[in-house]
């Protein structure tokens, strides 16, 4: 078994199993925890929890006017690499085929050249995010191992993917194997680190919105 066989076989299969196990474990543990009984009376004229939650999700897509200037870079850069990652993951034909192979779902792909360009922009955006984190005293102070490791496992597939399509540094099959292995690391880490926000971001924002609406905030 060569490195590519290992990556396409045991490595990615185990990584997906860990991902599914970890995600379901955390989601079930959270969702079945039970809500504390709220004995307060909801403020009159406020929307119900569903609409309040939805409103909060929408509202947090844009920065609060008070912090718009201060958060300009984080907001803009955050959108760039999140959208960039989505385009690269769901727009590249080999990635779609990976998903199709698992689920049977498929959709049209973008031209490879577009993906390469978006991948490069995404990598630069992620590097900019790290530079901001390191150079900002406040961000550096509140950053933990989780933040840095999450950054590493996020940018690694982008860089290794770009290296693979550009044949940079090694033979294609080696680069492809390293790319798949970097994805395996990301999948394994996803349920246990800050990357889990992929599953919780809308849930937590919706819950916060519903909670605040009940109090009339």
């Amino acid at each position: 078994m060569d490195l590519l066989d290992f990556a396409r076989g045991p490595a990615i299969n185990v990584a997906m199993a860990v991902l599914v196990f970890g995600v379901l474990w955390r989601l079930f543990a959270l969702l079945f925890l039970g809500k504390p009984v709220d004995r307060t009376i909801p403020r009159l004229g406020t929307p119900g929890p569903f609409w309040a939650g939805l409103r909060e999700i929408g509202r947090r897509m844009l920065p609060h006017p008070t912090f718009a200037t201060a958060e300009r870079f984080a907001f803009f850069n955050g959108w760039v690499f999140h959208v960039g990652l989505a385009i690269v993951v769901f727009g590249f034909r080999p990635h779609i085929l990976f998903i199709k192979n698992l689920t049977g779902l498929s959709w049209p792909a973008l031209p490879s050249g577009v993906i390469y360009a978006v991948g490069a922009i995404t990598a630069l955006s992620l590097i900019a995010a790290l530079v901001k984190r390191i150079t900002s005293p406040v961000q550096r102070f509140i950053s933990t191992f989780d933040d840095y490791f999450t950054w590493v496992v996020t940018i690694a597939p982008v860089l290794t993917g770009l290296a693979a399509v550009g044949h940079v540094g090694a033979r294609y099959e080696t680069l492809l194997a390293i790319h798949i292995l970097s994805i395996a690391v990301l999948l394994i880490w996803l349920p246990f680190g800050k990357l889990f926000h992929a599953f919780l971001v809308f849930l937590s924002r919706g819950q916060t919105g519903a909670f605040l609406a009940r109090r009339g905030v």
Partner: peptide
């Protein structure tokens, strides 16, 4: 080439 090989469905289902 980008597809996984091996008992993926069984493994993921069990997980």
């Amino acid at each position: 080439l980008s597809g996984s090989v091996g008992p993926t469905a069984k493994l993921v289902g069990g997980a």
